Amino acid sequence: MFYPNSPQTSPQLTQIPYGQQYAMMQRQIQQPYHPFATTEPQARLYPYHYQGPIQQEQGGFITQQSTAASPQYVQMRVTPVDQSIMSGYPNQTANGSSSSSFNYNIHPQQQQQQQQQQQQLRHHAMPVGSVPLQDDRYRKQLIVNYLAPDVTSTDLHELFSRFGELDGARIIYDKQTNMSKGYGFVYFCHAEDAKEAVERMSGYEFHGKWLKVGYSTNPLNIVPSNSSPYVHAGSRGAAG
C-alpha cells in the first residue's frame, strides 16, 4: 500500500523548493479562506456584503464582478436614472436638479381664491374633541361614552347635575331594538360647569363602566337656548 506522503511516492527534499517541504498533501497545500485577509477597505468593513468592485458596462447597466450573493443577503441591482424623465418638472436647472418651490404660472386672482378656499376649509374642519370658538353652545354640550346598558337618562342627569344647572341629558337608544347604544349627551347651562365635568368625570366608574367624557361637536345635538329642557323620564321611549 502506498500513501500520498510515503517515501516511495514523495520526491527528495532537495528537489522541493524551500517553504513547501512540509506541504505535501493536497489539504495542506490548499490555503484556508480568510474573509478579512484583503487589501480593499470595503471588504474589511463589510465582509458579507462586499463582492468586489463595481464596473460600468456598455448599455448603462451596473453589474458586479463577483458571483451571486448568499441567500441570506439580498443584493440590489441599481440602474442609472434617465434624465429625460425629470425634464417635465418646473424650475429645473441645466444640471438636472430642481428647486423646492414650484411655479405653475397661476393667475394671481386664482391663487388668492385657492388660498381663501383653504382658509375656509381649515375654519370649518374641526378635529374630534375640539371646541370651536365662534359658538358658545359647543362648550356646553358633552358626550358621555361607555355607558352601561342599564343607565337611563334620569341617572345621567343626576350624575352630572352636581356640577351645575343642566339644560338636559339623554341616552341614545336603538330604534329597532330599543336598547341603549352605550353613549349619551349632557347639556349644561354654563360653559364653566361643562369644563369642570369634563375634567372630573373622564375615567369615572359608573355602573361598572369607566366613562369617557368630552365635548360634543355635532351641531345636530345642540340644544337651542330658547327651547324647553328635555324630559328626564326613566322610560326608554321618552328618553330616546
Results as ranks from 00 to 15, higher is better:
residue 67 T to P: 06
residue 235 S to F: 02
residue 79 T to P: 09
residue 109 Q to V: 13
residue 35 P to M: 13
residue 32 P to L: 11
residue 184 G to M: 00
residue 85 I to R: 05
residue 37 A to D: 12
residue 28 Q to H: 12
residue 56 Q to N: 12
residue 52 G to P: 09
residue 223 V to M: 05
residue 15 Q to F: 15
residue 151 V to Q: 03
residue 192 E to I: 12
residue 207 H to D: 00
residue 149 P to D: 02
residue 175 K to A: 04
residue 185 F to H: 00
residue 206 F to T: 01
residue 114 Q to A: 11
residue 140 K to Y: 01
residue 153 S to A: 04
residue 126 M to L: 08
residue 198 V to F: 10
residue 58 Q to V: 14
residue 190 H to Q: 09
residue 194 A to V: 00
residue 156 L to G: 06
residue 217 T to Y: 01
residue 100 S to T: 06
residue 198 V to Y: 10
residue 193 D to M: 06
residue 171 I to K: 01
residue 163 F to N: 03
residue 80 P to Q: 05
residue 174 D to Y: 05
residue 152 T to Y: 10
residue 18 Y to D: 06
residue 176 Q to Y: 09
residue 4 P to I: 15
residue 153 S to Y: 05
residue 140 K to M: 02
residue 210 W to Q: 03
residue 182 G to I: 03
residue 136 D to P: 08
residue 235 S to K: 07
residue 103 N to L: 14
residue 14 T to C: 15
residue 115 Q to H: 08
residue 162 R to E: 11
residue 174 D to A: 02
residue 72 Q to K: 05
residue 95 N to M: 13
residue 95 N to T: 04
residue 190 H to A: 04
residue 73 Y to D: 01
residue 164 G to L: 00
residue 46 Y to E: 03
residue 75 Q to D: 07
residue 108 P to W: 12
residue 151 V to S: 02
residue 212 K to Y: 00
residue 54 I to D: 02
residue 27 R to L: 15
residue 150 D to R: 05
residue 228 S to P: 10
residue 219 P to N: 00
residue 76 M to K: 03
residue 240 G to M: 14
residue 16 I to V: 08
residue 110 Q to S: 09
residue 113 Q to T: 07
residue 239 A to H: 02
residue 36 F to E: 07
residue 39 T to E: 05
residue 90 P to Y: 12
residue 25 M to S: 08
residue 32 P to Q: 07
residue 13 L to N: 06
residue 43 A to D: 10
residue 203 G to E: 02
residue 167 D to S: 02
residue 146 Y to S: 00
residue 112 Q to R: 08
residue 138 Y to Q: 03
residue 60 G to M: 09
residue 182 G to C: 15
residue 180 S to Y: 05
residue 204 Y to E: 03
residue 150 D to W: 07
residue 2 F to L: 07
residue 10 S to A: 13
residue 111 Q to H: 04
residue 150 D to Q: 04
residue 58 Q to M: 15
residue 12 Q to V: 08
residue 107 H to M: 13
residue 217 T to M: 02
residue 95 N to E: 04
residue 76 M to A: 03
residue 138 Y to F: 03
residue 218 N to T: 01
residue 225 S to L: 06
residue 165 E to C: 13
residue 82 D to T: 13
residue 70 S to K: 11
residue 222 I to V: 07
residue 196 E to N: 04
residue 87 S to P: 06
residue 163 F to M: 03
residue 34 H to K: 03
residue 205 E to L: 09
residue 46 Y to H: 11
residue 82 D to I: 14
residue 80 P to I: 10
residue 50 Y to S: 05
residue 137 R to Q: 06
residue 116 Q to E: 13
residue 106 I to H: 03
residue 168 G to K: 05
residue 19 G to M: 11
residue 230 Y to N: 04
residue 89 Y to D: 02
residue 229 P to A: 15
residue 169 A to L: 01
residue 218 N to S: 02
residue 212 K to H: 02
residue 8 Q to K: 08
residue 170 R to N: 01
residue 211 L to W: 00
residue 56 Q to M: 15
residue 91 N to H: 10
residue 70 S to I: 14
residue 44 R to P: 08
residue 176 Q to N: 03
residue 48 Y to I: 11
residue 136 D to H: 06
residue 116 Q to L: 13
residue 121 L to P: 06
residue 121 L to D: 03
residue 20 Q to R: 03
residue 229 P to Y: 14
residue 85 I to K: 06
residue 19 G to T: 10
residue 98 S to Q: 13
residue 65 Q to A: 12
residue 126 M to D: 07
residue 166 L to F: 07
residue 201 M to S: 01
residue 104 Y to L: 09
residue 235 S to P: 12
residue 167 D to L: 02
residue 164 G to Y: 01
residue 216 S to E: 00
residue 180 S to C: 03
residue 68 A to T: 11
residue 107 H to G: 10
residue 29 I to Q: 05
residue 127 P to Q: 05
residue 153 S to L: 04
residue 83 Q to I: 15
residue 189 C to S: 06
residue 108 P to M: 15
residue 104 Y to A: 14
residue 92 Q to M: 15
residue 130 S to L: 01
